[in-house]
Amino acid sequence: MKKVAFIYPGQGSQSIGMGQDIVKNYPLARDMFRKADDLLGVDLSEFMFQGPEESLTHTVHAQPALLLVSSAITEILKQENILPNVTAGHSLGEYSALVAAKAISFEDAIKLVHKRGQLMEEAFPKGKGKMAAVLGLQKDQLEEALAGIREKNGEIVELANINCPGQIVISGTSEGIELAINKLKEAGAKRVLPLNVSGPFHSSLMKPAASKLDNELSNVEINDAHVPIFANVTAAKVKSADSIKDLLVEQLYSPVRFEEIIEALVEEELDAIVEVGSGKVLSGLVKKIDRKQKTFQLQDKASIDSFVEWYKEGEEI
């Protein structure tokens, strides 16, 4: 039997039409989409299939939409008796990983990420916080430059997503990010690209949202995970329910240590790392970290069929 990791995308991987092919081809997916619409009291499927893009990009819609597609494909694979040996997710994707590992039910998770999206949007005044992707600087160079901005200008600007060598996302106040764009170019960054997000996610400015998320999580049944999850906050395996809860709270204001997570997954000597859900962002990051690592990206029937065929190759019938 092959050894695989399932990894799950986060916000930014949403696109119009996401999930439409699996709903068309799998009754199980159709039922899950219907259930999601009912649980949220929102026509989420309509935003996903038809748009407008502005509505789908809205954090409160993008987060449950991404979890829905990822969880539906995970269930399709489960019907084929294909289960992950280990899981991980990028930011929001960690919730999809927890559903796959049976730590949180799909029903609780989709309501939880909808609420998480609301809390993240409300945590900091709209337009006052930003994020930007920095290309071509190493982590230590970046930290040194940001420390200088904090000391000199008093603005908050911090590491948010450590994605792969030479690609790190920063987060902070709008003024802090604007100062950083100029400072980091002087420090040798190839490019600094402002991101189209509604707030300074994964920075200390999210602590008010984290406190409220802690209260929400107290009302959700969290179980010990059936398979290990590599947590965003620590880049280490977690299985216990108490640790999972604490780490989800910390995750909102801590950097996503994705590069370290992929390095740890490579050490697991897996047959493949499988990106489950919308987009191909994570597969691209994996290849930048270890180009020899076999990857799959599953978001429609054709890609699912191809993966299932590979997984079952050589099995006795």
Rank of each mutant, 00 (worst) to 15 (best):
G51V: 07
N163L: 03
D300Y: 09
E54W: 00
V197P: 09
F106L: 11
G19R: 10
P84A: 03
S278W: 04
K301V: 14
G136D: 08
E80N: 11
V274I: 09
T59L: 04
N153Q: 13
H202L: 04
I149Y: 06
M32P: 01
V276Y: 00
N81L: 13
K280H: 06
L112P: 06
K35W: 08
L184F: 14
I222W: 04
E94P: 09
A264V: 10
P165G: 04
V286R: 12
E46F: 12
I82H: 05
D108N: 10
S278M: 02
A103F: 08
L247D: 01
G176H: 13
V281E: 00
K35F: 03
K237H: 09
L159N: 06
L40F: 06
F307K: 11
L137Q: 02
I104N: 02
M32F: 02
V23M: 13
L119S: 02
M32K: 12
V286T: 14
A225P: 03
L247Y: 00
A272M: 11
A241G: 01
V233R: 08
R150N: 10
I168Y: 10
V256H: 00
G19F: 08
Y95N: 02
V42P: 00
V23R: 09
P52K: 00
L213V: 06
Y253G: 09
D37L: 06
I304V: 15
K2G: 04
F296P: 07
L142D: 00
Y95V: 05
E309P: 11
M18V: 13
R257Q: 14
A5V: 14
E186T: 15
L92T: 11
C164S: 08
E175H: 03
E75H: 10
L135T: 11
I22F: 04
D108A: 08
A180M: 05
G279C: 03
K183Q: 14
S303M: 06
P64M: 04
Q141K: 08
V197L: 07
V220K: 10
Q293E: 14
Q14P: 00
E54S: 09
L146A: 09
K3L: 12
K185A: 01
S204G: 05
E178N: 13
I304G: 00
P165W: 05
G314A: 05
I181Q: 13
K239L: 14
V4W: 13
F47D: 00
Q11D: 04
Q14K: 03
V134P: 05
G19C: 08
E158V: 14
V238F: 04
K288C: 13
Q141S: 08
F230W: 10
G93E: 02
E269P: 06
I162A: 01
I222P: 02
Q118T: 13
